[in-house]
């Protein structure tokens, strides 16, 4: 079972077909096409920067000053958050939306979270490229530490897969999961260090924020992409271990409940 779930290499053709379809459906037929992948975060970023800097007069603690610098820090957080938000809001419908694949054909349903995560990662890669380009222009160059970006994102993948398997299976039986995840996502936007660094919080709140699984990803991403530092290795290893354990548990849950899918779809 484990290699069907964690290394679905033999399903690569199928996964690729689905990822392609996923990415293309989003932009096919729209006038701007792939332009939306950049335009949406850019517009959101301008509004956030205007609200937080222009109205609330927020400052990025830790030395970074200026509107552009603030925007870069928020962009780094938003990139991570929007992938999380996308996977989490879609997860309860992953299986629910494909009754034909559950009932009419023999289909490896466990790859559906992979499809959602890989499609999201393509999106993330585009935005990451935009972030690095902006950072390079603002600073006149990039630090070598950007090479560690794939490592920093590595624990994020099992975490998202875990959400996909857990919510994907639960959503089939409990139809109100979509409302729950939508609410959770909008709360987490402000409970994650997207618009502020963890260090700006009073120290008694900081441990609580560290419990948020998005915190280490966002903080590490800023570290390697914007601050020119290498990742905090022990924290990265711990995070990877926790995320993998969650993914393993979620895969077990999915495998145990999937025989009931066909009965209720």
């Amino acid at each position: 079972m484990h290699h069907d779930y964690f290394l679905p290499w033999h399903q690569r053709t199928l996964i690729w077909q689905f990822v392609r379809r996923e990415v293309l459906t989003r932009y096919r037929g729209s006038l701007l096409g792939l332009g939306w992948a950049f335009l949406t975060p850019l517009l959101m970023l301008s509004v956030y920067t205007f609200v937080f800097r222009g109205i609330f007069n927020a400052r990025w603690s830790g030395g970074a000053t200026g509107d552009f610098e603030f925007a870069l820090q928020v962009y780094a957080g938003l990139i991570v958050f929007s992938l999380f938000a996308e996977v989490t809001t879609r997860a309860p419908r992953l299986v629910l939306d494909e009754p034909n694949l559950v009932k009419k054909v023999v289909f490896p349903l466990e790859i559906l979270p992979w499809v959602a995560v890989l499609a999201g990662l393509i999106h993330l890669a585009l935005n990451l490229a935009a972030l690095l380009a902006a950072a390079a222009i603002a600073r006149g160059g990039l630090s070598l530490s950007v090479l560690a970006l794939p490592l920093v994102l590595a624990p994020f993948v099992p975490l998202l897969l875990a959400l996909g398997w857990f919510l994907g299976a639960l959503g089939v039986f409990v139809r109100d999961m979509q409302q729950v995840t939508a609410l959770l996502v909008s709360l987490l936007m402000f409970l994650s260090p997207v618009f502020y660094p963890v260090s700006s919080l009073p120290s008694r709140w900081q441990p609580w924020l560290e419990a948020n699984p998005l915190t280490p990803v966002i903080e590490q991403l800023r570290r390697v992409a914007l601050d020119g530092l290498w990742p905090a290795w022990p924290q990265l290893a711990l995070h990877l271990a926790i995320a993998s354990a969650l993914a393993w548990a979620a895969a077990r849950w999915f495998a145990a409940t999937r025989k009931g899918f066909a009965d209720v779809l």
Binding site: L14, T25, N100, K104, V106, F107
Partner: peptide
């Protein structure tokens, strides 16, 4: 039995051929 059950409405015939055949276990 259920001809075309694995088809996706939004996609072209060409893409659906690839999709349906990969569900049936064929490589690219």
């Amino acid at each position: 039995l259920e001809l075309g059950a694995g088809f996706n409405q939004e996609f072209s015939g060409r893409e659906n051929v690839f999709l349906a055949a990969s569900i049936l276990g064929l490589s690219t």
